[in-house]
Amino acid sequence: MTPIRIQNLTKNYAGKPAVAGVSFEVQAGETYALLGPNGAGKTTTIEILEGYRRRDGGEVSVLGADPGVQGNGLRERIGIVLQTTALEPELTVEETVTNFRSFYPNPHSVGEVLELVDLGFASATRVKALSGGQQRRLEIGLGLIGNPDLVFLDEPTTGLDPDARRNIWNLVLELNAMGKTILLSSHYMDEVEALAHRLAVLVDGKIKAEGSPQSLRDQHGAYTEVRFYLGERPLPESFPPALRKIIHTERGWVIFEVPNPTPFLADLTNWSFKEQFELPHLSVTQPSLEEIYLNPTRGRRGAARNSKQAEI
């Protein structure tokens, strides 16, 4: 059975579409990521799957059930980590986990879970005394205590320092090795690349691209950015007209996006050498997926790029 199947999901807030026709499937044992900026519809999609929100349209199935209808039977089999921390600061770590454990029919033991999230040393510590990363690990522990088949992790590392992020990454990899199916949301491409088998890039409530991190790179990262800095100076008259046509400028930077950098660089450096014109801060970079999809200005330029490419 496919743990998550979504077809043409739509959801509006006050008439504005938050999710506008999203479809994807998550296979058993897979870590699937929703990547996108704030307001892209990640949390709305996840909260519909968790049963927190009702959908306006489309088909949704979670572990074979409709989360909009199904109640406790489904909740026993899913684990939830919300986007914002939701803990009782007065309790100890152990009390918190023990309390959640009592809600489930076939839970893990408290000791097992605390060991897994590496909080065994803090079992008698009050929640308010934990660091942000430790609180996040505790919440992941609460998501696991019921021995779920499917775990939702809504931005599990947002706001954490790099060390705490790494710890959470290792934990997510461990969960996946235990055979849990995971739906993850994130702002960060590096996180998705480290954790997810497949991902969907969500922008403005729509899936812009879907696939494995590598395949998305191959499909959409197939151009190179060349840039140098001019400042206030104009480009010399002698600058090759063919190159001039594909220029994009941004705060003194002259930027080119080219599918095949080798002949382009040959032309550019040839001109520069001949004219004795220095190219300050010349750089050649492969944009990350993040830049391609998540940077709105880049999105616009990316769209314009398609028409310019023909001219090279």
Binding site: E50, Y52, N72, E76, T84, A86, E88, Y104, G146
Partner: peptide, 17 residues
């Protein structure tokens, strides 16, 4: 306060009635 803390929302995601 529990509602502000998100605890109520989190509880509703568990099988506790």
């Amino acid at each position: 306060t529990s509602r502000d803390q998100g605890v109520l929302k989190r509880i509703r995601g568990t099988p506790l009635k």
